[in-house]
Amino acid sequence: MAQLIAEQVLNGLQFGMTLFLMSAGLTLVFGVMGLINLAHGSLYMVGAFACAATAGATGSFWLGLVAALAAAAAAGALIERTVLRRLYARDHLDQVLATFALILIFSEGVRFIFGSFPLYLSPPAMLAGPVRLPGGLDYPAYRLAIILAGGVVAVGLALLIGRTRLGTRIRAGEADREMAAALGIDINKLYTAVFALGAALAGLAGALVGTLQSVQVGMGEPVLILAFVVIVIGGIGSIRGAFWAALLVGLVDTMGRFALPHLFALLTDTSSAAGIGAALASMLVYIVMAAVLVMRPTGLFGQNT
Rank of each mutant, 00 (worst) to 15 (best):
R171D: 02
L21P: 10
G299Y: 06
A73S: 12
A279K: 09
M22P: 08
S23D: 05
L160N: 09
T254G: 00
P261V: 09
V83H: 03
S272R: 15
L97D: 02
F264E: 11
A67E: 06
L38E: 04
W244Y: 15
A128M: 10
I225N: 06
D94M: 13
P118A: 03
A180R: 07
T168G: 12
M45S: 13
V230H: 04
G129L: 07
M289D: 08
G241P: 04
G47P: 03
A265Q: 12
P130S: 08
A89N: 14
A199Y: 01
V209A: 10
L208K: 01
P261E: 03
T211I: 05
L201A: 04
T211A: 15
V152H: 01
I103V: 13
E178V: 08
A278N: 06
I147K: 01
D186Q: 04
A278R: 11
A52T: 08
V66P: 02
A196F: 05
L190K: 06
A68Q: 06
T192K: 02
A24H: 02
R86S: 11
I147E: 03
P118E: 10
T298W: 13
I147D: 00
G162F: 03
L190W: 05
I231Q: 05
M126R: 07
A89I: 10
G109Q: 00
L35K: 04
G220E: 06
L78R: 04
A98L: 06
G41A: 10
A68K: 07
I147P: 01
V153W: 05
H40L: 13
I161C: 07
I185M: 13
G129D: 07
F100W: 15
V232D: 07
L212M: 14
L78M: 11
L144H: 12
L121Q: 11
F112R: 15
A89H: 15
T27Q: 02
F243N: 02
G167N: 08
R169H: 13
G135P: 05
I161R: 01
A72G: 13
N304Q: 14
G198Q: 00
C51F: 00
M295D: 03
Q216Y: 13
G12C: 10
G135H: 07
L267P: 07
E221K: 06
A200I: 08
M22E: 09
D253T: 04
R165S: 15
F30M: 12
E178S: 02
V194D: 02
A242K: 09
P261W: 04
L204Q: 00
A6F: 06
V223G: 13
G151R: 05
T164W: 03
G173L: 02
L102H: 03
P118K: 08
V66L: 15
